[in-house]
Design a protein around this nucleic acid. Structure first.
Lengths: 224, 224
DNA sequence: GCCAGTTTAAAACAGTTGTTTTAATCAGTC
DNA sequence: GACTGATTAAAACAACTGTTTTAAACTGGC
């Protein structure tokens, strides 16, 4: 019996080789990057032969693309769903803080609370810096839809907010959210007690309050 | 005569091989990453032999460290100097907006207005994602000194701001600034006309106004 | 047993990597 | 000229890369 129970992450050795490859590839690509992960690394972690990744996926890059297809849609859907939920739940015009908090949680949720550590963040950061994905699948499938949905929602919730300021306000919000993810990622690598005060729940409370203040300052007409 | 006038970036072929290697290495490491740049790439770009990088620096990693030593101190010094300048120029307590604007300009200045494109940003992003630098030279030499200087300055400028909120406020500010750099970096790779509205001058004006509003909301004592 | 078809294993391929070794060339100084 | 030391060049090294090829093991049906 060639059960091949490797020491690494093979929680279910009964699953097929193809599924195991997808599992360990997402893990290793996130940890070491696309170029830093050899096919022999993948084969060893999945407990299979080096030829298997070519057999099942037709190459290393195809496997990489297969991993992304799922995650991108997951990100976009949860973010847009969180916006729609706030807009539909309240009868009239929703509270600004509710919109901000719902979006913030949906934004960083799938990227931090995952069990096996923040894989998606690392994967995404690496892909943005040196891409191995076809063209602008990133901006088209996630960034643009999310941005436009949030901008429309914000314009609806804050009618007094000047239209020209809406993109900038979303810019500031997303900047803070991404930075939250960065810091969370750093905490995993270097365990710095000085970063301990930035646990996500506390940070989200702050971002909501801080951003709401900035927005209402614009909406108040103090600045053009 | 072996003038070796390569087609690539050798503006001054009269400079020594060591200096040319430092020059092209910073360029190539930023563009393709540490692992993505071979010693043969460096040698070709610098117009020298493959053995030169080992001869002058004792290896690829030593060359990489040498590049970082300078840039890290440059970043820290310009940022802290911008804070000290604001604190010393005004007689009494400086204006909050002045502090924010000065720090913001110093923060993103060396990272965007450089001639040969935003090399330092790419270099930094790559290093944060998969480090090739000894230990925590990054946090010790730049992040921690800059953070503490800014937090002290902010506490002095805004005495009414609750002490517990100071780190969070700096967190939001830096999150927005780093996001500014990200977007600027994206504009270089993908020329998206939708991102054209985020030119740095306009974004800095916004970040100052937005953050000042958030800070004064805390300082106003509305929220504990 | 025999025979498809699918899946796995091992070896081989051609190419690249960082580093070292060996030789050659260059500058000065006598 | 010859000698010394620093610098450059070319070749060789061992290790690793993604992919392909070849052969073996397995599956279910008859």
């Amino acid at each position: 019996m060639t059960m091949s129970q490797d020491s690494s992450a093979l929680r279910n050795p009964a699953t097929g080789v193809r599924d195991r490859l997808l599992e360990v590839a997402e893990q290793l690509f996130a940890e070491r990057g696309f170029d830093g992960t050899s096919i022999r690394d993948l084969a060893a972690a999945a407990g299979c032969n080096v030829a298997s990744v070519n057999y099942y996926f037709g190459g290393k890059e195809k496997l990489y693309g297969e991993i992304w297809r799922r995650n991108l849609h997951l990100l976009r859907d949860t973010r847009i769903a969180s916006i729609d939920k706030v807009l539909s739940e309240s009868a009239g015009v929703p509270c600004l803080e509710d919109l901000l908090r719902s979006f913030a949680c949906a934004f960083i949720g799938p990227l931090v609370d995952e069990s096996g550590g923040p894989r998606l963040i690392r994967l995404m950061a690496r892909e943005m810096i040196n891409p191995h994905l076809p063209a602008s699948m990133f901006g088209d499938d996630v960034i643009r839809p999310t941005l436009s949905a949030m901008q429309q929602a914000l314009a609806k919730v804050c009618p007094e907010l000047p239209e020209s300021k809406v993109p900038l306000v979303v810019f500031s919000l997303i900047g803070q959210l991404i930075h939250t993810i960065w810091v969370k990622m750093m905490q995993h690598s270097m365990d710095d007690e000085a970063l301990a005060m930035f646990e996500p729940a506390r940070v989200i409370d702050h971002i909501v309050a801080f951003s709401a203040a900035g927005i209402t300052a614009y909406a108040g007409g103090v600045i053009e």
